[in-house]
Design a protein around this nucleic acid. Structure first.
Length: 143
DNA sequence: TAGGCCATCTGGTCCT
DNA sequence: AGGACCAGATGGCCTA
């Protein structure tokens, strides 16, 4: 448990309001709220597990720091589009194996991942996220 | 120290 | 009625 807001089960306005009702009702409401909190925690944990699984299959470009949830979604979107492009291009041109591989590398260039283009508020210009400071020759594409 | 990211709590809404 | 889902609020942790 990382942090915890003061809940109405501890003390607070809601608590005092419920105190004016019967103790049974207060107890029932408290129990229901705590159960709902537990369910919500579990739901969010499931969501985070899904994000972790998504991070594992999405390119990391040698980045040591894990992608945020927002970045993960953006990267997944771009990755899917890039893969889709590979498939459609390969079909269209009926390429050889070597050509197909070259096409893949071409599609995997960072500039094909606009999700990681950041806006620099200081300079007012776009710049490439540090995630792309990788050596492509070294094939440091972590998936 | 400010800003980003995150976990948690909470109340509202919708669905079964 | 109770569970699932969602969004807003809040506070902790971390980094530049």
């Amino acid at each position: 448990m990382k942090s915890r807001r003061p809940s109405f089960t501890d003390s607070g306005s809601e608590s005092s309001e419920l105190d004016s009702k019967s103790p049974e009702k207060y107890e029932t409401a408290t129990r229901r709220r705590m159960a709902a909190n537990a369910r919500e925690r579990k739901r969010m944990q499931g969501l985070n597990t899904a994000f972790d699984r998504l991070r594992k299959v999405v390119p990391q470009w040698g980045q040591d720091k894990k992608l945020s949830k927002y970045e993960t979604l953006q990267m997944a979107l771009s990755y899917i589009m890039a893969l889709n492009r590979i498939l459609t291009d390969a079909k269209r041109h009926n390429t050889s194996h070597r050509q197909w591989l070259e096409l893949q590398f071409d599609c995997m260039q960072p500039e094909n991942y606009p999700c990681l283009m950041r806006y620099d508020s200081a300079s007012g210009q776009e710049y490439i996220h540090s995630a792309f400071s990788y050596q492509f020759d070294g094939h440091q594409v972590h998936t």
